[in-house]
């Protein structure tokens, strides 16, 4: 058997593929975070909570209402976007003019409140959301047997990332959005409703997080903590990629998923810190991140 640095090649390929699955989640979440920061200037700490809420909403649709996975993946991002819009209109719009730290504090507070409610209502033992029947089973890739659901995760997450990127970078709407962040008052003078654009972008970002939550729901026990264990990593991804850079978040998300995968094979103890070591190195060399503008 071929070995790469003492690890059998098939094992390594398997781990890299799993890294890609995790990377897809990082990409999806950091994309939303980056979008919100780029256009709203809010460091949205509640992003992980929206991911958690996405997973629990999927569960709620299934348990009392009987609406399955495909309904959830359609409806939950919309519901979450609605909630996001309410939060933006009632809370966040009041703090745009203040320092970043206020946005961070407010969204951190929201995280605590929402998580607390979920914990009181659902408890901490974890809930189970089954893999939809049409995506059950495994495929044999030669070097590993991969559950079909994980392939779907990569396809769905990257698909949505690509659509978001195309809309922002390649359409007229996206051009208006970008112009709105550069110089809101000028764009407003041209007759564009900038506050509405900002609200919609926040809704979209939250929707992306909730979509990631639905994708993740069948992969883990749903506990109220799932949000904040992933958000820390995602912040690392955004900082490495460059705050506000769309493409940067996607590429960095996937790349760091792979690096984490490697760490899990060669030195598992460091798997959760590898990203942050990298973050420090990147900040030393390129303080604006790999893809950030100076």
């Amino acid at each position: 058997m071929t070995e790469i640095f003492g690890v059998p090649a098939p094992v390594l390929y398997g781990q890299l593929l799993l890294g890609l699955v995790n990377g897809s989640f990082y990409a999806l979440l950091s994309l939303g975070l980056s979008l919100i920061f780029g256009l709203l200037n809010i460091v949205n700490f509640a992003h992980g909570t929206m991911y958690m809420l996405g997973a629990f909403l999927a569960y709620l649709l299934l348990e009392p209402l009987g609406l399955g996975y495909w309904w959830a993946i359609l409806l939950v991002p919309l519901l979450a976007a609605g909630l996001g819009i309410v939060i933006e209109r009632t809370i966040l719009k009041r703090i745009y003019k203040l320092d970043h730290i206020y946005g961070l504090l407010v969204t951190f507070g929201l995280t605590m409140v929402i998580e607390g409610f979920v914990r009181v209502y659902f408890g901490v033992s974890g809930l189970r959301y089954a893999v939809p029947p049409s995506l059950q089973g495994m495929v044999d890739l030669g070097f590993m047997r991969l559950p079909i659901y994980r392939i779907w995760v990569i396809v769905a997450a990257l698909g949505l990332c690509l659509v978001t990127w195309l809309v922002i970078e390649r359409t007229r709407l996206g051009a208006t959005l970008r112009a709105g962040t550069e110089n809101p008052s000028l764009v407003q003078a041209f007759g564009v409703n900038v506050p509405l654009l900002v609200t919609l972008v926040f809704g979209w970002g939250v929707g992306l997080a909730a979509f990631a939550g639905v994708l993740a729901a069948p992969l883990m026990q749903l506990t109220p903590q799932i949000g904040h264990s992933i958000i820390i990593t995602v912040f690392g991804v955004v900082v490495i990629g460059g705050m506000g850079s769309i493409l940067g978040s996607i590429v960095t998300g996937l790349g760091l998923g792979l690096i984490e995968g490697l760490a899990k094979v060669y030195y598992p103890e460091a798997s959760s810190t590898a990203i942050f070591v990298l973050m420090i190195l990147v900040l030393l060399v390129r303080p604006h991140g790999l893809f950030g503008k100076q």
């Binding site: 799993l18 890294g19 264990s229 899990k264 094979v265 598992p268 103890e269 798997s271 959760s272 810190t273």
Partner: peptide, 21 residues
């Protein structure tokens, strides 16, 4: 054996795969 970070790892597939193989 494989060590994972406590309460921070949301994904156990990598560890599971190592254990199974």
């Amino acid at each position: 054996s494989v060590k994972h970070p406590a309460f921070m790892a949301s994904d156990f597939s990598s560890y599971a795969l190592q254990a199974i193989s």
